[in-house]
């Protein structure tokens, strides 16, 4: 029997590592979630108990934290899409030399570490920071605007700044791949610029938009450092609680239940986003290699 090597087969080793890297910890989490802890011996006991799952379903704080993470991810992804989409199209229309510069500028947030960015934002948004100094200097406010720092606004502003490149890059690539002759054909057939955009450009950039939405959603919903260091008293996240439960509390079963619940919710939300996007004809056309 002759084995033909397709391009898809080249992805097998990496896919295998990814599957194993995801599956093994996941299986461990599932097992731990029904175990109990013997606090006298500091041992996990391989029982079968659904008490932790019952706690997850009955204590509203867990649902609140997970819901907050999902909402935060969705808000950031939507704003990033609204801001990132026109930016990506503009970059796609730049002369080639400017595209290089745009790429460097776009990736600037990623060149520095997260902690450096967090402290830089504190300098910009703080009570004695740059923006408040300008506002006070111009006589627009008498006292520093405290809401700029340590509020949900700060968290989402910084999440947006951190994740915008992950939205712009895939849309930009999608826009670059559009055959310009399709736009010209639409115009020749009488479509106005806006119509050509809605009927040709937008549908064909939906796969890029989809990748961007999913990436920004995952990065924002799963972030712990930005909310905790810039969100002030509103910075609680399920990740911080998981960290505490695995650590000081030594309650690995409850931590596993919370981690699995978060994972299931994020996965369901991401799947819904993907499902919604696939309802667009343009996205299906790109992914299937043509309309069927």
């Amino acid at each position: 029997m002759r084995l033909t090597l397709h391009r898809a087969h080249l992805a097998l080793p990496v896919a295998l590592v990814l599957i194993l890297g995801c599956l093994l910890p996941l299986l461990l989490l599932i097992a731990f979630s029904v175990f109990t802890v013997d606090m006298d011996a500091f041992e996990m006991v391989p029982d079968f108990s659904l008490a932790n799952w019952a706690q997850m379903l009955t204590n509203p704080v867990f649902a609140f934290l997970i819901g907050k993470a999902v909402l935060s991810g969705l808000i950031t992804a939507l704003i990033a899409a609204v801001l990132g989409y026109p930016l990506a199209l503009s970059i796609a229309n730049l002369p080639i030399a400017w595209k290089g510069i745009a790429q460097i500028l776009l990736l600037t947030p990623l060149y520095t570490g997260e902690i450096v960015r967090i402290y830089a934002w504190r300098v910009v948004l703080g009570s004695e920071g740059l923006i408040n100094a300008v506002l006070e200097g111009l006589g627009l406010v008498d006292e520093p605007v405290k809401l700029l720092l340590f509020s949900p606004f700060t968290t989402h502003l910084v999440l947006l700044y951190n994740t915008l490149p992950f939205m712009v890059l895939p849309i930009w690539i999608s826009a670059e791949l559009i055959d310009r002759r399709l736009i010209e054909a639409a115009r020749d057939l009488g479509a106005r610029p806006f119509e050509a955009f809605t009927r040709v450009v937008f549908p064909l950039t939906i796969p890029g938009l989809g990748v961007g939405l999913l990436a920004v959603f995952a990065l924002s919903a799963g972030d712990m450092l930005t909310p905790s260091m810039l969100g002030g008293t509103s910075g609680a996240t399920p990740m911080a609680m998981i960290d505490n439960l695995f650590g000081t509390a030594f309650d690995w079963p409850l931590a596993s239940v919370l981690a699995l619940s978060l994972l299931i919710t994020l996965f369901a939300t991401a799947s819904s986003i993907g499902f919604l996007l696939l309802r667009f004809k343009g996205a299906r056309a790109v992914l299937q290699g043509g309309l069927k």
Binding site: N59, T248, A249, D251
Partner: peptide, 18 residues
Amino acid sequence: VAPPNYSDWLKIWNEVKA
């Protein structure tokens, strides 16, 4: 000293923050 019911303390703390 972290009490034996420290998970409950954590839940309370997260309820406060939430």
